[in-house]
Design a protein around this nucleic acid. Structure first.
Length: 414
RNA sequence: GGAGAGUUGGCUGAGUGGUCGAAAGCGCCUCCCUGCUAAGGAGGUAACUGGGUAACUGGUUCGAGGGUUCGAAUCCCUCACUCUCCGCCA
């Protein structure tokens, strides 16, 4: 949610900034709604004030045993006016709120111009591409079984068998340990979240179709970002507790509505996948530095897994709804001959904090916090990258050294 | 699933129709005292929001939503959540 005061005061600048990400702000609609609101609100509040005074008088008259009929008539008139005006005001406020909830975050100045992913900016390439493998991960091994998964659940699910199931578990532990080493506190969280939580992170009301909803009116979490952020919903944080750094491994559930036909093969795009999330709450003044740090923490995992990757900064037209600045980390996928997203690290500035009411208390007063998060990493895609990049051409995957304590061996038979 | 209790400021917690945005304590801020620290003393301290250049001034909020009433933290109804006991259960 963007700041309504800022919108009122700087509507033209806001409109220009939002246009960078392809959002056309209807300024005239806002101006008209807001000026109507202003007039109505003043009117309603004046009526309320008058009624308050008259009611007090009424009480005194009643206490002294005097006649109250004429005063009551006056109050009744005010009350009936008030009722009408209030209904108008409420529906207007509702419209304004809907209008605001629909507006995405304002891109940071450092977010480059551009309209889609083709305009994203390459920041760096890390690691050498050594693999000459062209075989897709699903063709490499029988231990990823999507046919079985579709019998159990349907399309876009996978069953991992034996050593691959174990490798996934090893990766999860490995990533959590790195996060812990870097100062993130590990959390185990609910895999379902209520409506308020999803509104807080910006997934609702606009993106309900992307979510799985249960019969109990709970939603399956699309990412641990949702419960992690909402830990601090309606909380006033003391400045000296910052930055807060949390991590969690959870499965993530996404309906993938609208992605028919894309990435239908293999583990790339699933309704359910495992992810380690890195999450921070920081002071507004240091959130960009914290984003850089978080990105570095995510990159460290790929480096120690010896996987080639690149970092890309998303352009204004490609950043997510709640984000003001995003870096994607993309790992090399030999069979596709291209880099694929394995982590997305974003600064949400105060956009989520305003929706979730997360504030910082300092000497200078209170202000909305900044939230930052990113994957560290998407486990399924990491697994694929290891298979495809480290396939030796026979029936073995040579795992990187760092995984030995977790997997128990450096040879993975496929 | 059954029975009961509860939800009030940054926190704990009093408050059964107007004098309550709300006692008290904790915390926090300012000042005093003490060579430093600890302790002590005085005062201040809810949030959100409207109007106004400002001084200032209005409104809303006691889990949410309705209702009763001239007037609701307080009475009534519905819902959500939390806790306790019983049952069932990993």
């Amino acid at each position: 949610m963007i700041d309504i005061k800022n919108l009122r005061d700087n509507i033209d600048a806001t409109s220009v900034a939002l246009l960078r990400r392809g959002y056309k702000l209807d300024s005239e609609k806002f101006k008209s709604l807001d000026s109507k609101r202003k007039a109505l609100q003043v009117n309603v509040e004046t009526l309320q004030s008058t009624r308050k005074k008259l009611s007090e008088e009424f009480g005194k008259l009643k206490a002294s045993g005097s006649d109250t009929t004429s005063l009551k008539e006056k109050i009744d008139t005010i009350n009936s006016d008030l009722k009408k005006e209030n209904e108008l005001l409420n529906s207007l406020l509702e419209s304004i709120n809907e209008y605001l909830l629909d507006i995405p975050n304002i891109p940071d100045q450092s977010t480059p111009d551009g309209s889609n992913e083709n305009d994203n900016v390459l920041i760096r390439k890390v690691g050498e591409i050594l693999s000459t493998n062209t075989v897709d991960h699903t063709d490499l091994t029988k231990k990823i079984d999507t046919d079985l998964a579709s019998k159990l659940a349907g399309s876009r699910f996978a069953v991992l068998k034996g050593s691959l199931a174990k490798l996934q578990r090893a990766l999860i532990s490995f990533m959590l340990d790195i996060a812990h080493k870097n100062g993130y506190e590990e959390y185990y969280l609910p895999y379902m979240a209520n409506k308020d939580s999803l509104i807080g992170t910006g997934n609702l009301p606009k993106f309900e179709e992307d979510l799985f909803k249960t019969s109990e009116n709970l939603y399956l979490i699309p990412t641990a970002e949702v419960p992690l952020t909402n830990i601090y919903r309606d909380i006033l944080i003391n400045e000296d507790e910052l930055p807060i750094k949390l991590t969690s491994h959870t499965p993530c559930f996404r309906s993938e509505a609208g992605s028919y036909g894309r990435d239908t093969k293999g583990l790339i795009r699933q309704h359910q996948f495992e992810k380690i999330e890195l999450f921070k709450i920081s002071n507004p003044s240091s959130s960009m530095t914290e984003l850089d740090g978080l990105l570095e923490n995510a990159e460290e995992i790929l480096k120690s897994l010896e996987l080639p990757y690149q970092v890309v900064q998303l352009c204004a037209g490609d950043i997510g709804f709640s984000s003001c600045k995003t870096f994607d980390i993309e790992v090399w996928m030999p069979s596709q001959n291209k880099y694929r997203e394995i982590s997305s690290c974003s600064n949400f500035s105060d956009f989520q904090a305003r929706r979730s009411n997360i504030k910082i208390k300092s000497k200078d007063g209170k202000q909305f916090a900044h939230t930052i998060n990113g994957s560290g990493l998407a486990v399924g895609r990491t697994l694929i990258a290891l298979l495809e990049n480290r396939y030796d051409g026979t029936n073995l995957i040579k795992l990187p050294k760092v995984l030995e304590p977790y997997f128990g061996s450096l040879d993975l038979e496929i």
